[in-house]
Structure formats: C-alpha cells, structure tokens
Design a binder for these strands. Structure first.
Lengths: 117, 117
DNA sequence: TTTGCATACCTTTCAGTTCAAGGTATATAC
DNA sequence: GTATATACCTTGAACTGAAAGGTATGCAAA
C-alpha cells in the first residue's frame, strides 16, 4: 500500500467559495455571478455558465442557498440568497482556503525552518 | 453559445508548482518530495505517490527536470534536479499563482471598490 | 525466521471537476 | 431581419487527483 492518507481533492471548492461569498454580500442571480467574478477579478478568473449554474443548483439542493424568481424587463431571473447553512459552509471554505494558501506560501517562500534534514 | 472564453483549468498546476519549487531549492528524489510536502505544510497538503510520480515523469519528459540514478543503502533512488526550462516553468507557475490568489483574495475581502453596480 | 514496517520505485482505476459547446428564449439596437 | 446582450439550462470530453494496488530492499522485533 502506498499513500497513507491524503486530502479529498485539495484544490477544489474555489468556485463554490467565490459564489457563496458574492451572494452572501448581496442577493444575486446566476448570470450576474458570472459577470461579477469576471469583473471583480479583472479577468484573472473566468468561470463560465457551465460551471456556475450547476454549482448554484447543488448549493440550493444542499440548503446553502435559497432562491426566488422574478421577471425584470421581460427576463426571468432567479435570485439566490445565502442561508445559515450557507454561511457555515462559506466560513468552512474560507478558513480552509486560508490554510491551504498559507501552506503553499510556506513552500514557495521556503527555506526558513527547512534545511535541517 | 454561452461562455465566451474561460481559463484552462484555472486551479491546476499546484502540485507541479510545489514539486518544482522544492527541487529548485535542492536536488530531490520522489519519495523525498512526498515527505517534504507533507512536513513543510504541516499536513495541510497531502499528496500521495500516485500524484507525485506521474508529475515527476511528465516534467522530465518536458525537459523541466533531469534525473540521475543513485543507490543508497541498497535502495535505488532517482534524484531530480531542475533545468533552465524548469526554472522558466516555475517562474510562470509562481506568478500565475500569485495572480490567482490575489484575485480570489479580492473577492473574499470584497466590497471595497464594488457596490457601484 | 518470519512478520512487520519504513524506504523507494511504479501503475491502474475511479470519481469528481471544469471546459467547451451546445440549446432555448426575450428585448433591444441596427 | 439580423445581431447582440441578457438569462436560463444541459451534455460530453478531457483532465486531475485520490485510492489502491504492485514490486523490492533493509532492518528491527517477535
């Protein structure tokens, strides 16, 4: 046997994190989320609708988001807002992300405590 | 048609980045890389051999790493060291990672320049 | 002495994600 | 009437990492 224990897909959940965070700040609909990520990250992160919509549905299914329908200018929008469960989830994802980036940063900067092998 | 243009698998390349960085600092063999990542990140990142070895082979195939074989205590090790091509690759991955985390951080902290929608 | 564990290499299979591309429909501008 | 932007959606391929397996050596304990 090889690997003793690893982490389940350690780099995942970032789209989920971004979506939850944006909606936590302010009720949003799917198409709006796609644009918001593009704009706020200045094109550094480009997540298409094929990513956003399925995540939105999954989050609602899990009770992290709830939705309401509204038609504006003849266009049907589905507004999502965060639930207490979603807040918890967002909090988990955020701290996990911090932990990960800190760990990676340590390796990238590296060399301080190491060498002693 | 939906998505105009997205980024090719935006969260990838982190194992590659870590491996290149470690080997850039100091010649290393595969098994050692696995342990180094585990130790230096204090278990925050656990990448098994099933991840490390294929990446090592791919990097060597691409000319980013070169290897030499050596037997120590009856155990056959394959030491990898970085090439100029690997340095370039490491540099790219590092700046790309910085760009990404900065973008994500902006969304997480959020709310400073936004609101104006 | 044989069992187990750590070292050290490797591969294959499965599951989960993302990307790309498509589809539907309405409103507005040209 | 054609194109573009808005707004929703799904499917398929491709890629990745996780899990689990396999081989082999050296050493320590039972």
């Amino acid at each position: 046997m090889a690997s003793p224990k690893t982490n389940p897909n350690f780099m995942n959940g970032v789209p989920e994190l971004l979506i939850l965070k944006l909606i936590a700040k302010q009720e949003m609909y799917g198409y709006e989320v796609v644009q918001a990520i593009r704009l706020q990250t200045e094109e550094a992160i480009l997540l298409g609708e094929g990513v956003i919509y399925p995540v939105l549905h999954a989050l609602e299914r899990d009770g992290a988001l709830k939705s309401r329908r509204q038609t504006v200018n003849g266009r049907r929008r589905i507004y999502y807002s965060i639930t207490p469960e979603g807040q918890r989830r967002l909090s988990d994802l955020t701290s996990n992300w911090a932990r990960l980036t800190k760990a990676i940063q340590t390796v990238i900067v590296g060399g301080q405590h190491a060498e002693a092998v």
